[in-house]
Simulated assay, not measured.
Amino acid sequence: MVWSVRKACRSALAAGALLLASCSQGPSGPAEPRTEFNIGWSIYAGWIPWPYAQQAGIVKKWADKYGIKINIVQVNDYVESINQYNAGKFDGVTVTNMDALTIPAAGGKDTSAIIVGDYSNGNDGLVMKGADTLSALKGKQVNLVELSVSHYLLARAAESAGLTLRDIRTVNTSDADIVGAFSSPHVTAAVAWNPQLSVMKAQPSANLAFSSAQIPGEILDLMVVDTATLKATPNLGKALAGIWYETVQLMLRQDSEGEAARAAMAKLAGTDRQTFEDQLSTTHLYSDPKAAVAATTSPTLMTNMQRVRDFSFSKGLFKGTSSADAVGMAFPGGKTLGDPQRVTLRFDVSFMQLAADGKL
Rank of each mutant, 00 (worst) to 15 (best):
240 L>G: 03
342 R>L: 05
227 T>H: 14
227 T>F: 08
233 T>C: 01
247 T>I: 08
247 T>V: 06
338 G>K: 06
255 D>C: 07
258 G>P: 01
271 T>H: 02
318 F>Y: 15
262 R>T: 10
229 T>A: 07
241 A>Y: 04
276 F>Q: 02
280 L>F: 01
229 T>Y: 01
256 S>M: 09
243 I>Y: 05
252 L>M: 09
270 G>P: 01
258 G>C: 01
271 T>M: 10
303 T>C: 00
336 T>K: 02
336 T>Q: 03
316 G>V: 09
225 V>Y: 00
267 K>D: 12
343 V>R: 08
314 S>K: 12
236 L>Y: 07
278 D>C: 05
337 L>H: 04
344 T>I: 14
226 D>R: 09
321 T>W: 12
230 L>Y: 02
329 M>C: 07
269 A>D: 03
268 L>P: 08
291 A>W: 00
305 M>G: 02
256 S>R: 11
248 V>G: 05
264 A>W: 06
268 L>I: 15
255 D>P: 07
261 A>D: 00
303 T>P: 00
231 K>Y: 06
223 M>L: 15
341 Q>R: 15
234 P>T: 08
254 Q>Y: 06
312 S>K: 07
293 V>R: 07
250 L>F: 01
287 S>D: 11
336 T>M: 06
262 R>K: 13
339 D>E: 03
314 S>I: 02
240 L>Y: 05
301 L>A: 09
347 F>T: 01
347 F>Q: 00
312 S>P: 04
251 M>P: 00
297 T>M: 07
343 V>K: 11
297 T>V: 12
247 T>D: 03
221 D>C: 11
297 T>A: 02
314 S>A: 14
303 T>M: 07
230 L>M: 07
254 Q>R: 15
335 K>P: 01
226 D>H: 05
250 L>W: 02
280 L>I: 03
332 P>E: 13
305 M>C: 08
305 M>P: 01
280 L>V: 03
238 K>P: 00
300 T>W: 03
287 S>P: 01
331 F>D: 01
289 P>Y: 10
270 G>R: 00
242 G>S: 04
221 D>N: 14
302 M>N: 08
251 M>K: 05
304 N>Q: 15
285 L>H: 09
282 T>D: 05
307 R>G: 10
331 F>M: 05
325 D>F: 06
293 V>S: 06
300 T>H: 10
321 T>M: 12
289 P>D: 04
263 A>L: 10
318 F>Q: 13
312 S>V: 08
251 M>Y: 02
324 A>S: 15
227 T>I: 00
295 A>N: 08
320 G>M: 14
300 T>K: 15
312 S>F: 06
303 T>R: 12
292 A>I: 05
238 K>L: 05
228 A>Y: 01
264 A>D: 15
234 P>S: 05
299 P>L: 11
